[in-house]
Simulated scan of single mutants.
Amino acid sequence: MLVVADDKQLPVQDARAGKPDAWDTLFRRYQMPLYVYVFELVHHEQTSLDIVQETFINAVRHIGSLQKDEKFGSWLFSIAHQKCIQHWRRRRESEVPIEEQQENDLYYEDGPEALLIRKEEEEQFMALMNQLPLAHRSVLLLHFVEEFSLEEIAGITGTQIGTVKSRIHYAKKALRKLIEERTS
């Protein structure tokens, strides 16, 4: 397993000074969590990769605007979140459908039966998540998958903490209802 710096040891000051090794460390730490978050919002592999790349380009350009180094992770996710919103706006304006999602090759040490069951359960759950509005889906992903605090999610999404709490509450309620409908 690749070991990267935890949030408290991130070389944000060195990145601010333009040191390539620092940016490499930050990229290795955040590339996969950002990709997973973005992919769950846009559902397209190449678009997700592009948004992650654009996120890091913006981070390099605007690192001077980051006021607290320990907030680098939530600041980076807020850039990605805004890029996803821009993507959806452009998509709505152009009304060009997104290409169908390609199957990702996943590696599991389990046997083929366990792999199929896990993949099917994950697909069913994500299909239910995809029925939620983008605002609800994003707060659930940020809170339960990426484990950001409510305050960090408010910063990422540009909303108040009360709004984040409300969205999480209603998203969980809606998801619970979808699950109940599916199982009944």
Rank of each mutant, 00 (worst) to 15 (best):
I98G: 04
I51R: 10
Q31L: 07
Q101P: 00
H62E: 09
H143Y: 09
K8C: 11
L116A: 11
E100S: 12
R90H: 07
W23Y: 14
K172R: 14
V12A: 06
I57Q: 15
W88D: 15
V164R: 00
R61H: 12
R137P: 08
P97M: 05
K165G: 06
L2N: 09
M1Y: 10
S166F: 07
E121A: 11
H81G: 04
Q13V: 08
I57T: 14
V145Q: 01
Y30I: 05
E70H: 14
T183G: 05
C84M: 10
W75H: 04
H81Y: 12
D105N: 11
P33N: 06
E147R: 07
Q82R: 15
N104M: 13
H87V: 10
Q131F: 09
L2M: 05
K173N: 03
R28D: 14
A127N: 08
K83Y: 05
P97Y: 10
K172Q: 08
W23N: 14
I98T: 14
D6R: 13
L26N: 05
G73L: 02
S78W: 02
S94V: 05
Y170F: 12
S65K: 13
P33V: 00
E121P: 06
P20N: 11
L41D: 03
L141F: 08
S184C: 04
D6F: 12
A135Y: 00
L10C: 06
D7Y: 08
D69K: 02
E109V: 01
R90P: 01
P11W: 01
E70Q: 14
Q53F: 01
E103Y: 07
T159D: 06
P112I: 00
Y107T: 07
A59G: 09
A171E: 00
S184F: 09
Y107S: 12
Q101C: 05
H44E: 08
F39R: 13
V12R: 07
P133S: 10
S138M: 05
E123N: 11
E120R: 13
S48G: 05
S166R: 13
E100Y: 07
H44R: 05
D110Y: 00
I85E: 03
Y30P: 04
R182G: 03
K172E: 02
A5C: 10
W75P: 09
H43D: 09
I156N: 04
R28K: 12
S94C: 03
R90C: 05
T25E: 09
E151N: 13
Y170H: 11
N104F: 14
P20R: 15
V42F: 05
